[in-house]
Design a binder for these strands. Sequence first.
DNA 1: GCCAACGTTGGC
DNA 2: GCCAACGTTGGC
Length: 158
Amino acid sequence: MAQQEPSYWLMKSEPNAYSIDDLKKEGTTLWDGIRNYQARNFMRSMKIGDKAFFYHSNCKPPGIIGLMKVIDIGLVDPTQFNPNEKYYDPKSKQENPRWDCAKMSYLGQFAQILSLEELRLNYKENELQLLRKGNRLSIMPIKKDIAIDIINKLGDFQ
DNA sequence: GCCAACGTTGGC
DNA sequence: GCCAACGTTGGC
């Protein structure tokens, strides 16, 4: 049985909240706190072995900064049951959790950020969902050829 | 800090 | 099920 081909994703995080440096230090992280159904559904369709670009958002400049690998999927997001948590969801039931997440591991940081501005220069809106007007999704798929192109463009990891 | 573009909530 | 009001995201 041939192994399924990995898919590629883009995952946003505000560096003040959780940055590529944090992931580099920790090695792995649970991508919790997702409270948007579309983003959750994308995360649900991830497979172990998929790769994801780490995108720094709400900072200067915003852009792709590193690469991660999916190492586990379908994990219950523990933050939804903790009333002291920012991401507490009182409507989520223990027997039927509303929010789940993937576990990611650090693969590398690129030598320089590939900024949103450069992404706009290099790709079209229909090639990269990130570039579409009004896009606010924090997790989205990336077409394989675009993903490969981005990796080639950025070259070696730091 | 502004605000456009979304997503969610809840009254009806 | 509609939709106004509200909350959030995230670039600028």
